[in-house]
Amino acid sequence: MATQATTVAPKLFTRQSIRGQQRSRQLVDKLMTGLITTCAALAVAMLLFILVYVIIRGAPALNFAFFTERPLPMGEVGGGVAPAIIGTLLIMGAAALMGVPVGIGTAIYLAEYGRGRFATIVRFVIDLIAGVPSIVVGVFVWALLVRQVIGHFSGFAGSVALAIIMIPIVTRTVEEVLRLVPDMYREASLALGVPQWKTIIAIVLPTAKSGVITGVVLSMARAGGETAPLLLTALGNQFFSFDLFQPMAALPVQIYNYAVSPYDDWHTKAWGAALILIMVVGLLSFITRQVTRGRGLGGR
């Protein structure tokens, strides 16, 4: 592009001053382009660095037993993080079941119906929740569910905490993408005699689908890595447990426990568990995208 401009320009502009201006403009152009390209490269580099480093440190811990066995007491060699993998999947699954519908529903309300005072209040509260540190959410759920309603630590309490963290993320991203759907599609649908609720479900949501999924995946990734609220709610568990109403292991908690220990073997295991957590989150977003593929109204 730049070479083209320099070869063509002299023919068009012969006056010295114009050429001088052009040269400085091209210089600034190159400088700024270089700057933003560096920024982009930096962002990608950080991500790659984290990924590569976790793989390098975590890979030695990975073996078949690490995926299938339960953690062993300190001093014993071997063992794995299988209960934590199962726990994370169950807790996140339950959290998504609670948080995603509420989040999408709130987003639909705000984008399609919400006008006036109540909508303003809802939006304000959602922003407020998004700003609450996750440990405070954990303390809240601990006080409400762990201390009062259920009476002990449980995976379900962890799910509730994660759902609370997911809701504002889902709501804000989905509201944003719903607003991006041009009104002309809503009008086209309404003008066909389609009721508004059906227009939203069959036209607006499918049109905004990729954005909606991005919001859901983003919220799951964020919630999947939360440690503090799970320490206060799911607690962790050294044994296999599929009961959401009992204390449950989870990968972030497992990573934390391994990482704060004084043993080198456990540090390696912490890296291994971190690598698995990345894989689990990646897998979940992959599955979400696969499951929701295809056109809005299904095939012919």
């Binding site: 041009p182 649908s189 309404l190 066909l192 005699g193 499918p206 012919r300």
Partner: peptide, 28 residues
């Protein structure tokens, strides 16, 4: 809703539903 069901409308900007095929659009 019933009124609009019986009175068709074509808008200024062509607005076929973007996530539907030609066929799906016609019978939407």
């Amino acid at each position: 809703v019933q009124v609009r069901r019986h009175i068709g409308m074509v808008f200024q900007k062509p607005n076929p539903f973007p996530m539907m095929s030609v066929w799906q659009n016609v019978v939407a």
